[in-house]
């Protein structure tokens, strides 16, 4: 039991605590105030923020001028679809890692053998590219070359022991987007692809640039590592015996997962989803690079205000408030899960 604290001490900490809290929150508060002022009042706010009239006009203007609702729909679609997709991929994966762990690699090849195979694949690709004068304008050849690189690596990861697989999954989250930007940009933007003439396949049918067809899988992949890790840590807390009991009771794998595991892990699954909704909602790098109109989410919408015409602060503030309010509230509810999700179990 902790001892009682002197009232003086409590008072001091209350003052310091609230000062710090208000300072941290101030930019958000200030934006909220500006959102409800007229444009000209917003520019001279500090002197008169209590005396100037409050107004809702900015919200109407924002919607009218830039079709705010469309961005909300895009963001919502992006967030829900990518979260659902990640969930479908991550639940079986986390189940597998948590309940059927492998102490050793299931492959008979040694690490050096795998490295040799991958180097050989890279060598074959290199020679093929050299022979083709560094151009790949044959669809089949392109696919074969990509498979040559990816297939051995996939098989290697797939056969590693459980902690090896988990750490590899974590390491994919570490890849800087700058390293992937160029190929993703070119793949999405068919006009720029070096192997653009693939003969019989008309790539203009598959334009992924500025499309949810491209953004949803991308954001799913961005968050999948965190998804698997968080679910893994939640599943680990469920005793294996309960799943074994369900097997003894005649449950199929489907029933084991949907009737026993998922209901038991429901709080964990919910908080995993919440954290990933926050991350997907706020994603900016890929949104700014790969969307500009049809699939643009809210973070792109706000960035449009960086080169405005005329007075725009009140409208910027109104738009900002509309963009952050839902996620701020979700964030407040899931703050405790943040630690688990963003430290990969390294802090308990």
């Amino acid at each position: 039991m902790a001892r009682a604290q002197s009232p003086r001490r409590t008072l001091i900490f209350t003052l310091v605590g609230w000062t710090v809290g208000i300072l941290m929150f101030f930019p958000i508060f200030w934006t909220t105030v500006a959102a409800f002022k007229t444009e000209s009042d917003a520019y001279s706010l500090p002197q008169n923020f209590l005396t100037t009239p409050w107004t809702l006009e900015n919200f109407a203007i924002v919607q009218e001028r830039s079709d705010y609702v469309r961005y909300v729909i895009n963001t919502t679609l992006l967030v829900t679809l990518s979260t659902a997709l990640a969930l479908v991929l991550a639940i079986p994966a986390a189940w597998s890692l948590a309940f059927a762990p492998r102490a050793e690699s299931s492959s008979r090849l040694s690490g050096w053998a795998w490295i040799a195979i991958m180097l050989a694949a890279a060598g074959v690709s290199f020679v093929t590219l050299y022979v083709n004068d560094w151009k790949v304008d044959n669809f089949v050849l392109g696919v074969v070359l990509l498979l040559l690189v990816v297939a051995p690596a996939t098989l290697w990861v797939w056969t590693r022991n459980t902690s090896g697989t988990l750490l590899w999954i974590l390491s994919t989250k570490m890849m800087p987007p700058a390293g992937a930007l160029i190929p993703i940009y070119l793949i999405f933007n068919r006009n720029g692809l070096v192997f653009r003439d693939w003969g019989w396949i008309n790539l203009s049918d598959f334009n992924l640039m500025d499309s949810l067809w491209g953004m949803v899988p991308l954001v799913t992949l961005l968050n999948l590592p965190i998804f698997i890790w968080m679910l893994f840590t939640y599943f680990k807390e469920i005793p294996v015996a309960i799943l074994e009991a369900s097997r003894m009771d005649g449950a199929s794998l489907w029933n084991e997962i949907t009737r026993v595991l998922m209901p038991m892990a429901l709080p964990g699954i919910a908080s995993t989803c919440l954290l990933n909704i926050i991350l997907a909602w706020n994603e900016a790098f890929w949104s700014l690079n790969l969307t500009n109109k049809y699939a643009a989410p809210l973070s792109f919408f706000i960035s449009e205000y960086s080169s405005p015409e005329g007075q725009f602060w009140a409208k910027l503030s109104a738009a900002s408030i509309m963009a952050i309010a839902p996620i701020l509230i979700i964030g407040w509810f899931s703050q405790r899960q943040l630690v688990r999700g963003l430290t990969f179990g390294a802090v308990k």
């Binding site: 309960i242 009991a245 009771d249």
Partner: peptide, 16 residues
């Protein structure tokens, strides 16, 4: 385990 037609009582009870 499902096909064998046996039932098991676990040390931790393993109730749902």
């Amino acid at each position: 385990p499902a096909q064998r037609g046996l039932a098991m009582v676990f040390q931790s009870y393993a109730l749902y």
